[in-house]
């Protein structure tokens, strides 16, 4: 039996059907990400698990116990919010001790746990600062420490990094991952950023309009999108219908096909290797994206994106003609 189970979870806000019969299982010790575009219901599901939102139907089981009707304070779940939500009138230390004091733990135990958590998020020396004197990144570290100091059964993180700049974000992603491993936590992370989901997760659940489109590990989700939405949301897939696929490959297809841009091969010479489909195209556009160049290529009236490693020596100019090849196993049936 899974550690956390959502069974047929429904949630309505008035007439707005936000969660449509969610069934989801989370294993103990996993780092699970709910990924999806804005407004698809990720936060709502997380808040139902936290108890901050009532479900309209269905059951939530945690560690073998039905917690659907339980108060948030009795669920033993930790949460890190997007807006930090630290208590402004308390120092870092007091923020961390808040919940421990409520549990009436002995003072030396509180002291020790607070100290451990502060060390874990590397905020030594900031114990007696007020939140307003800390940077955004530091505040989020405090929020993270406050989430783990209670030793919760599950740690929930609702887009904790979205207000933090790109560089700091990377380092916090690593910290969160490490803390998750070190404490053997079960974590549920919410994000709308597919790269972040790829980097951090053991399992990704892709959300769309209140249902789960696809679940799997990051490699699986990336290489084998199961639906047009999944292909569109992840990895900038080229999504082609039957007619376009016929024009591209000269063969009949039985449905929509997704092709990752980096699986198309561009060359100046005729390609003789064993790729399944070969064609010729015209370069329409060229955009540098970090270490790859993304070309827009038109071949036989079909436009596709092709990613090529950025080497200035072998760049194509707009208007150039290039040979192109594609392997059959890189055409993902949706």
């Amino acid at each position: 039996m899974a550690y956390i189970e959502f069974k047929d979870i429904d949630k309505f806000y008035g007439k707005n059907h936000v969660l449509r019969g969610i069934n989801l299982e989370i294993e103990q010790g996993d780092f699970v990400t709910l990924l999806g575009p804005s407004g698809c219901g990720k936060s709502t599901l997380l808040r139902c698990l936290a108890g901050l939102e009532q479900t309209s139907g269905g059951k939530i089981i945690l560690d073998g116990e039905d917690i659907t009707q339980k108060d948030p304070k009795d669920r033993n779940i930790g949460m890190v919010f997007q807006q930090y939500s630290l208590f402004p009138n308390m120092t870092v230390k007091e923020n961390l001790a808040f919940g421990l004091k409520l549990q009436k733990l002995p003072a030396n135990e509180i002291e020790k746990r607070v100290k451990d958590s502060i060390e874990m998020v590397e905020l030594m020396g900031k114990e007696n600062e007020y939140p307003s004197n800390l940077s955004g990144g530091q505040q989020q570290r405090v929020a993270l420490a406050r989430g783990i100091v209670m030793r919760p059964k599950v740690l929930l993180l609702d887009e904790p990094l979205s207000a933090i700049d790109a560089k700091l974000r990377k380092s916090l992603q690593t910290s969160i991952r490490e803390i998750h491993k070190e404490l053997g936590l079960t974590s549920v992370f919410v994000t709308h950023d597919q790269d972040e989901a790829m980097v951090m997760s053991d399992v990704i659940h892709l959300f769309h309009d209140g249902i789960i489109e696809q679940s799997g590990n990051p490699v699986n989700i990336y290489t084998k999108p199961a639906t047009p939405f999944a292909a569109g949301f992840i990895g900038n897939y080229n999504i082609l219908n039957r007619a376009d696929m016929k024009k591209l490959t000269g063969k009949d297809w039985d449905g929509d096909i997704a092709i990752r841009p980096e699986t198309l091969i561009l060359s100046r010479e005729q390609i003789s290797s064993g790729e399944s489909y070969k064609m010729q195209g015209e370069i329409l556009d060229r955009v540098p994206r970090g270490n790859v160049l993304r070309y827009k290529v038109r071949t036989n009236g079909v436009e596709v994106y092709v990613d090529v490693l950025f080497r200035s020596a072998s760049m194509y100019e707009i208007g150039d003609t290039a040979f192109m090849a594609l392997a059959d196993h890189n055409c993902v049936r949706l």
Binding site: K73, M79, F81, Q83, S85, F98, L102, R146
Partner: peptide, 20 residues
Amino acid sequence: GVGAGRLIEAAQMLGASKLY
């Protein structure tokens, strides 16, 4: 101004009742 709703939710997750 202090975002009372969010503070209360954060406190609840730390084991406090709404009233507290």
